[in-house]
Design a binder for these strands. Structure first.
Lengths: 330, 330
DNA sequence: TTGTATGCGTTATCAT
DNA sequence: ATGATAACGCATACAA
């Protein structure tokens, strides 16, 4: 059923039907009523693709995430939908499974006039990313990583880890282990580690490579990393760069017969929903991922709305230290 | 940059460019090379919307979920992407926030030739759902609920709860509380409860309304429900219809000064990723949500591929009883 | 106030 | 083997 058919049934021209559908232009009350009657009668719904082609916009926002089945990603997406729905925009999700190549491809593909703007939650930013991003014909907002020349929504990782580190030291810990991720992830792998190293130095604590382990993002990685550390030395506290890593570490510590937090304290970062329901509840840093999605979407719409060149800006999301019982004062 | 421009730059007709892009029709090697050179040169990417209009298909699958920021939903979506990517299909996500109306709207909207097929993860199926679904011009697959006339991917809730109930009774429990959800959710609210009731009868256990509480899906709801039950009576075991409800219940039980599982045993359903990392690790039923997403997508493609009327079928997803330490033998 | 006709960017049909 | 052109369904400029 297309606009022509409706026109015929209502005894008017296609243009009139279009005017009724979009509520613009002049159309007499009786014709309008006739058209509306037919529309309701046959349950006519316009072809969105044809509209997109004609209007040169799809009312779709592309979202690129490294892995949708992750609490972080799904909360970001939730935040994005929160604001896109007020604008009647739809979300096209590209799940890249942490494959850099997939990410680049999605970036290219989505921009082919399929979407009006793109939000990308990134873990790693390569030169290739930047190159493709520069060629984009639609606005792009990045979440989670810094990318020169684009609006980025960032978590204040350095300050967060610093605050957390200070709190751990203030609680009387001197042997603080660190479980991190690959340095290619600038924000999580590099900055969080740097804050740890700077923390050691600031408190005149020695750097001990035996207390540092680098792994992937999974719970299992946390387990492996902690196991490696325990083979060499027993720290009094462990700082993991994500809650999942912390959970794996806790498991490993228990499997070695130690108690938490009596023997070893553990902290995470992220404050996943279940962090407070673990036992002991996890001391961590709360990031409001949903908010970051909302802000990214708002920024994107800002760029889409204004014709002139926008000014890229970095926006830092607030964080909160969440003190629970997985860390014990000594 | 459109096909016409490429044609001009390469000194050929638009038709030839199209042939090169799609690798069909005849085109001499030298012309092909010329066209390819220009395409690479200017980084040409075809307009997907125009292609969709012309081809009468968008290569987009619509996915309707009640709440994306939920482990269940995101794992289902993950499964769907797993198979859509092999077909070069994109995913359009409609996050309905558990609003029935939003669900209906999405169903209507997505079908307007915007998507080639729809997968809907449902919590409640109303007459309105069915009516709109029947008018759909694209195939539809339902996950999680039964809907007459459509292919449904279902969790075998009755059997799962029955197995779990039997296990609880076999472990020596007689006072078994039940925390459920609203009956409008047929599968989770109704069938799981019916299996509980039938379990009582089969084992000649009395039905005690004081031991049954109905709430929403959240952890907080589990807490509230359990608190209400504890005000009246102390069961030896609690069966919650989701892991989140179980987690809330555990919290409530502990806040009343009881130990788990020594004083009260608790079970969940779903086996969220963290279930095994709780203390005590949660006894639950494992559902492979990712698999259900994959199967739904495969079913959808089956329907999209064949021209003739397909036969709606119900597909049940396997489950596994996962015995952990939140339930104690008496 | 309404209708006719054109074009959005692509593909496919039909000539050549 | 290649090119001109119509058509996909809609919105809009222009004519009436």
């Amino acid at each position: 059923m297309k606009i022509k058919d409706i026109a015929k049934l209502a005894g008017v021209s296609p243009a009139t039907v279009s005017r009724v559908m979009n509520n613009n232009g002049y159309v007499k009350a009786d014709k309008r009523k006739a058209v509306e009657a037919v529309i309701k009668e046959v349950g006519y719904q316009p072809n969105e693709i044809a509209k997109s082609l004609k209007n040169q916009k799809s009312k779709i926002i592309g979202v690129i995430v490294p892995k949708i089945s992750t609490e972080t990603a799904s909360r970001i997406v939730d935040g994005i939908t929160q604001v896109t729905k007020t604008r009647n925009y739809q979300l096209l999700i590209a799940n890249t499974n942490q494959q850099i190549e997939e990410e680049i491809n999605s970036l290219k593909f989505l921009s082919n006039k399929l979407v009006d703007g793109i939000i990308m939650s990134a873990t790693e930013v390569t030169d290739q990313h930047i190159e493709v991003a520069r060629r984009l014909t639609v606005p792009l907002v990045i979440i989670g990583q810094k990318m020169e020349g684009f609006t980025c929504v960032l978590y204040n990782n350095y300050n967060a880890v610093t605050d957390l580190f200070n709190y751990i030291v203030d609680s009387g810990h001197q042997e603080i282990a660190f479980i991190g991720v690959d340095q290619r992830d600038i924000e999580v792998g590099q900055i969080r580690k740097q804050a740890y190293l700077d923390g050691l130095e600031r408190h005149q604590l020695p750097y001990n490579p035996d207390l540092v382990a680098i792994e992937d993002f999974s719970i299992e990685s946390g387990y492996k990393a902690m196991t490696r550390i325990l083979e060499k030395r027993l720290p009094t506290a462990v700082m993991a760069v994500t809650d999942h890593l912390a959970i794996g570490a806790i498991q490993a510590i228990r499997d070695c017969g130690y108690r938490i937090p009596e023997d070893v304290s553990v902290t995470g970062i992220g404050d996943i929903k279940l962090a407070q329901y673990l036992s002991p509840p996890l001391t961590t840093v709360h990031y409001n991922f949903k908010t970051s999605g909302q802000i990214a979407a708002e920024q994107l719409f800002n760029q889409m709305d204004q014709e002139e060149k926008y000014v890229a800006e970095d926006i830092y999301i607030d964080y909160d230290l969440v003190i629970r019982n997985s860390l014990k004062k000594r």
